[in-house]
Simulated scan of single mutants.
Amino acid sequence: MGGRHSAGSGNASENAANRPAGEDLRTSINSHHRVDPNVRGTDARTLGEPDDSGIGTRTLDSAAQTLGEPDNPGIGTLPSGASGASEPPAKSDPVKKRRRSWFRTFLSFVGELLITAGLVLLLFIVWQLWWTDVEVHRDQAVQQQEIVQDWSPEPSTTGTPRTDDPPVAAPVADGEPIGIIHIPRFGSDYAYTIKQGTEMSVLNQGAFGHYANTQGVGEVGNFALAAHRQTYGAPLRDVPELQEGDPIIIETGDAYYVYRVTEHYIVDPSEGDVVLPVPRQPGVEATERILTLTTCHPPFVSNQRWIVHATLDYWVPRSDGLPPDMVTD
């Protein structure tokens, strides 16, 4: 047995002597790094294979998720469990897109239409409430100048009131001037033309219109007039301010007729009997010279009529001078 041991030892020594020095070193290192297969599954995940230079596979994967791949430096990859490549965007439905486009176009059209209609309505209101008054007031001054140029000049003296039968103005054609109305309660310079007829073509000139088939100025019966209360000069805008006894003066080429307010009230538009020779008394013969004013009520609603009655107090020939109620201090 001692001989076998010696022989084996001798062979080992001989083999060691015959191996290169470097091979012994590698053998020694490999023996130190040999890993138990049962343990390698755990340790390799931490330490990595020898080729990994000591960096664990999980550690490397985690670093890649944090720092990014080498070709995308500094930008992290998607979280674990998500695909690294971006998913293509969802395809839109062209039919739904066309429907949305059509609906939006329709809403835009309706919106623009409403805005345009609102602007047109606003401009109409401005024109109706303000500009028509401006135009009428300017036109009234021209109309009055045209009327009085055929009359004798306005007197500068005060005439003497008369209570005998006054001259009756001659009838005129539709749209033709009858005279000028003055209402001192509304201002010393208040003056509007009076024309035959109550059509809008007459009233929209800012004129008072004379009801057809009613009596003329100065005549026994009812000299009935209509005028606007809003827009187109609004001659009777302030009609509620009239008080009993206030003078209403009709100027013609022959005389001044001074009526005094006796009453006012509100009626429905269907109550046309207010312009009868004796207001609201059909078939009764007139004995007084009455003036009636009619206008819309309330303003901008106009579902009723405001009525004012006045009776002739006196008259003054134009050649004698102005009536005392037109003379201001």
Rank of each mutant, 00 (worst) to 15 (best):
M1D: 11
G3H: 07
G10A: 12
A12I: 13
N15W: 04
N18A: 09
R26D: 12
R26L: 12
S28C: 04
H33G: 03
V39E: 14
T42A: 12
T42C: 10
A44N: 10
R45L: 15
D51N: 11
S53F: 13
S62N: 13
A63P: 01
E69P: 10
P70S: 13
D71V: 12
D71P: 04
G74F: 08
G76R: 14
G76L: 05
A90N: 00
K91V: 11
K91F: 05
D93N: 15
V95C: 01
S101F: 10
T105A: 15
T105N: 11
F106S: 12
L107P: 00
G111R: 01
E112C: 11
E112P: 02
L114M: 08
L114K: 01
A117V: 08
L119S: 08
L122W: 06
W131V: 12
T132S: 10
H137R: 09
Q140N: 14
A141W: 02
V142N: 10
E146K: 10
I147R: 07
V148K: 11
V148R: 13
S152K: 12
S156D: 14
G159I: 04
G159Y: 05
T163N: 13
P167C: 08
A170E: 08
P171E: 00
P171V: 00
P171Q: 00
D174R: 04
G175P: 00
E176K: 02
I180C: 01
H182C: 01
R185F: 03
T193K: 03
G197I: 09
T198S: 03
G209L: 08
Y211V: 12
N213E: 14
N213K: 13
T214F: 03
V220F: 07
T231I: 11
V239K: 07
Q243A: 15
G245M: 06
T252W: 06
Y256D: 01
V258S: 06
E263F: 04
H264T: 13
H264V: 01
V267C: 05
P269H: 02
V278G: 02
P279Y: 02
G283D: 11
E285M: 03
T287R: 07
E288R: 14
I290A: 06
T292W: 05
C296Y: 01
H297Y: 15
Q304I: 03
V308G: 05
V308E: 07
L312I: 12
W315E: 05
V316D: 00
P317Y: 06
S319P: 00
G321L: 13
L322C: 06
P323K: 07
P323A: 02
D325E: 15
D325A: 13
T328N: 10
